[in-house]
């Protein structure tokens, strides 16, 4: 039996313009589910038999592209926790309204009606780039339009991935420098 993933996205009551009740609403449950689906395909679950990996995400402030940010945060935390993954997973969101493409939309942009939002979670360096999660919500979209959105989102993910990788590397260097200096002093 390979490992299992448990995901819970919690939004702080003050994270939205209108106060959220402490009980999880459908949106939080939906995001938890989507995050779980994405992480299950990214973590090397065969390496964790008979075990469960709990991933808890706390949202402090929602200013759009929330699911994408959750995926990126979870991916970085998994790497920080030394859990085997196929690649560092990053998430990005694009919005399509009329002929305009909004990369990484803000909350005000998301709230406007008649728009399409596409959120993807992907592992850009595994097998030439693989998409782990793709969610299209609110509204209709033509297939050509969708592929254009997808290309933009993939491009965004690639940029995010290099940034996330750099962040991990800097953190590692700092930790190594810190541990070598603290072990040599006493």
């Amino acid at each position: 039996m390979s490992g299992q993933v448990l995901c819970a996205v919690k939004m702080a009551p003050f994270s939205a313009p209108v106060r959220l009740p402490p009980q999880p609403d459908t949106r939080q449950q939906e995001m938890s589910r989507q995050l779980k689906d994405a992480l299950e395909s990214v973590i090397v679950l065969e390496k964790f038999p008979k075990s469960q990996i709990d991933v808890y995400v706390t949202v402090i402030e929602d200013d759009g592209s929330l699911l994408g940010a959750c995926i990126t945060a979870a991916g970085l935390a998994l790497c920080h926790a030394n859990i085997d993954v196929y690649d560092l997973v990053v998430g990005a969101s694009v919005l399509f309204r009329g002929d305009v493409l909004y990369l990484d939309p803000r909350r005000e942009e998301e709230e406007v009606s008649d728009n399409n939002q596409l959120t993807i979670g992907m592992i850009p360096k595994h097998a030439g780039g693989q998409i782990a999660l793709m969610v299209q919500r609110s509204g209709q979209v033509a297939p050509q339009c969708l592929s254009e959105c997808l290309n933009a989102a993939v491009d965004l993910c690639n940029r995010l991935h290099s940034l996330a990788q750099k962040t991990l590397l800097v953190h590692l260097q700092e930790t190594l420098a810190h541990s070598s200096s603290s072990s040599s002093s006493p």
Binding site: A12, F14, S15, A16, P17, I60, E61, D62
Partner: peptide, 25 residues
């Protein structure tokens, strides 16, 4: 620290980190 709240603060005591956000209705 939080723009969606009417008032907010983040406090660290050593490693303990708490955040308070105040929403007014």
């Amino acid at each position: 620290t939080v723009t969606t709240a009417e008032g907010s603060a983040t406090v660290r005591l050593g490693h303990t980190t708490v955040m308070c956000g105040i929403k007014a209705e």
